[in-house]
Design a protein around this nucleic acid. Sequence first.
DNA 1: CGGCACCTTACCCGATTGTGTAATAGTTTG
DNA 2: CAAACTATTACACAATCGGGTAAGGTGCCG
Lengths: 211, 211
Amino acid sequence: MAYQLLIFEDNSRLRESLAILLNDETNFHVAASYPDCDKADKQVEKYKADLVVMDIDMPGIGGVEGVKRIKNSNPEVKVVMHTMFDDDNRIFDSICAGADGYMLKNTSPLQLVSALQEVMNGGAPMSPFVAQKVFQHFRQAKIESEQFNLTAREKEVLELLVKGNSYKMIADKSFVSIDTVKKHLQNIYHKLHVNCGTEAVAKALRHKIVG
Amino acid sequence: MAYQLLIFEDNSRLRESLAILLNDETNFHVAASYPDCDKADKQVEKYKADLVVMDIDMPGIGGVEGVKRIKNSNPEVKVVMHTMFDDDNRIFDSICAGADGYMLKNTSPLQLVSALQEVMNGGAPMSPFVAQKVFQHFRQAKIESEQFNLTAREKEVLELLVKGNSYKMIADKSFVSIDTVKKHLQNIYHKLHVNCGTEAVAKALRHKIVG
DNA sequence: CGGCACCTTACCCGATTGTGTAATAGTTTG
DNA sequence: CAAACTATTACACAATCGGGTAAGGTGCCG
């Protein structure tokens, strides 16, 4: 039984090429294709689609919003982004919106087909460049985190602060006086270039200075 | 010119099979293979390796620590994890440690070779299951984030707090009195089950209630 | 040995934070 | 329409926070 497939792509030539190409595969049946995804959720339901190929830059609501809607009403439908955009925001927004794959448009037809196959087998296909971005995302923070030159003690205090402890609680848990804690935090705030505890916590978490 | 390849794998049969298999490829030359990675950084330098296949569970220092050392002394060397472990910690620790790919041992030889090829072309190959885990990691937080039932106004105030604003600054930017801000934050703290601003910021960031 | 960086404590003081209580008013929902 | 929820403001009070300033102790390195 072939998977029911929907295509959302505003470039009409590309849309038709994709439709023909993917229809040639015995595994897929292109149920319909549209130049925008304003009613994507309805259309997915109408054709009982198993799989969606989604462009990002389209008139009306964009592909990222489109994924959200589809996943909201039909979480089990697989959605693979297919776009020329390779910037971090588009990639991560799409993934967070619920996309199951992210293929750039420089992908060969053969690779696209195998990506669609992979997603139906529970995978999460992405173009090499996208995969690299994703890996970088995990690593990047760690690089900067060492530039603040926090001492071991300062990191310890900061960690306790992030966990929600008050100065007094930190003092108790660190077995030092509250004034010491105060001093440490004062130094920490200077090193992080922040003015208060909440800002320090935000910076510590964003830059992964603490877990 | 074939890439110089090193293999770290404690299972001697698998190690030898891999060596033979990969040596058959014209693109790769297995320079050496070892049952542990205690001196991985030295060995990488000795053979001027371009690429490393790394097991995780090995006697002595583990593969994750091995990647760290290699990347520390030779950041340009590509490292592909090759392991049977598919738990979140191992996967994310490896990636953060600097791994360029993560292939499970159920990968077919053909797929492994193409993964190694992909990594040399600047990609970040991973088994479908791993890719799925990675995608989930981006999404997971968003799921819970809606369970706190914060109102639009509360989210707005919380966002300003996370940015490091004081009560007074939030009041100004929201065009309300400081007492209103106080009240909103009080409600927010209750909804998040926290007792102070720092804790709220930590929770907001971890659960991605705010960007 | 003399700096240098780090950890430690103390005190003062103003500003901020967090809680409790109470009241008014608009909106949504049953 | 009434009830429930939300947004708003106000006041009082205790606790905490954050800055400034000063100073004693440790351990390391040239």
